[in-house]
Amino acid sequence: MSELRVEELSAATIVAVNNLSLKPGQEQFLAPVSYGIAATAVNPQTSWQRVVLDGDEVVGFVSASFGADTPDEHFHNVLWRINVDADDQRRGIGRFAVNALIDEARARGVDHVNVIYEAGADGPEAFFRRVGFEPVGETEYAEVVATIRVTS
């Protein structure tokens, strides 16, 4: 593995992000990438979208928002999506992306980040727990709300 880095989503990387593959069963837990990318156009001040590169190859994508103006506190600082190409999973890329998100949260003075996901056998819960998210509640649609604390 080369040195991983994150870069802002751009016209040069958007096609590669749209072509990231999933392992069988993962697609039911992840909306199309274009949904997450559209968030930047809608809320450029609060949206944070980055690609993870291994050398020059896009191997992952992470989308979050900070300080969203919504009455539901779960959505104020939230990881919306993280996906790592199927061939690159289990190499630490997802953890690297979460750490980049935590660094961004820290720089913004945020004390926690939430993630909301659907529970299920092939779902992301084990990954989120491994990287430090702890379940704290449920949405009205029975999705899990988990939080990771940002330390200074």
Score class of each variant (00 low, 15 high):
Leu53Met: 14
Leu53Gly: 10
Leu53Val: 11
Leu53Ile: 12
Leu53Pro: 14
Asp54Cys: 04
Gly55Val: 10
Asp56Pro: 12
Asp56Thr: 13
Asp56Ile: 13
Glu57Arg: 13
Val58Met: 07
Val58Ser: 10
Val58Glu: 08
Val59Ala: 07
Val59Pro: 09
Val59Gly: 06
Gly60Gln: 08
Phe61Thr: 01
Phe61His: 11
Phe61Met: 09
Val62Asp: 06
Val62His: 04
Ser63Lys: 04
Ser63Cys: 11
Ser63Ile: 06
Ser63Tyr: 06
Ser63Gly: 08
Ser63Arg: 05
Ala64Gln: 11
Ala64Met: 14
Ala64Cys: 14
Ala64Phe: 12
Ala64Lys: 09
Ala64Gly: 01
Phe66Lys: 13
Gly67Leu: 00
Gly67Pro: 12
Gly67Tyr: 02
Gly67Met: 04
Gly67Trp: 04
Ala68His: 08
Asp69Thr: 07
Asp69Ala: 00
Asp69Met: 00
Thr70Asp: 14
Pro71Leu: 11
Pro71Thr: 02
Asp72Cys: 08
Asp72Asn: 14
Glu73Val: 00
Glu73Leu: 11
Glu73Asp: 06
Glu73Lys: 02
Phe75Tyr: 15
Phe75Pro: 05
Phe75Ile: 01
Phe75Gly: 03
His76Tyr: 10
His76Glu: 02
His76Val: 07
Asn77Met: 06
Asn77Phe: 15
Asn77Gln: 12
Asn77His: 13
Val78Cys: 08
Val78Arg: 12
Val78Ala: 10
Val78Asn: 07
Leu79Ile: 09
Trp80Thr: 00
Trp80Asp: 01
Trp80Phe: 07
Arg81His: 13
Arg81Ala: 15
Arg81Asn: 11
Arg81Phe: 15
Arg81Gln: 14
Ile82Gln: 00
Asn83Val: 10
Asn83Asp: 01
Asn83Thr: 06
Val84Trp: 08
Val84Ala: 09
Asp85Glu: 03
Asp85Val: 05
Asp85Trp: 04
Ala86Met: 03
Ala86Phe: 00
Ala86Trp: 00
Ala86His: 06
Asp87His: 14
Asp87Ile: 10
Asp88His: 14
Gln89Arg: 13
Arg90Ala: 07
Arg91Gln: 03
Arg91Lys: 08
Arg91Thr: 04
Gly92Arg: 10
Gly92Glu: 06
Ile93Asp: 05
Ile93Met: 06
Gly94Glu: 07
Gly94Ile: 09
Phe96Ser: 03
Phe96Arg: 02
Phe96Cys: 03
Phe96Leu: 00
Val98Met: 10
Val98Gln: 12
Val98Lys: 08
Asn99Lys: 15
Ala100Gly: 09
Ala100Ile: 06
Ala100Pro: 03
Leu101Tyr: 01
Leu101Gln: 03
Leu101Gly: 02
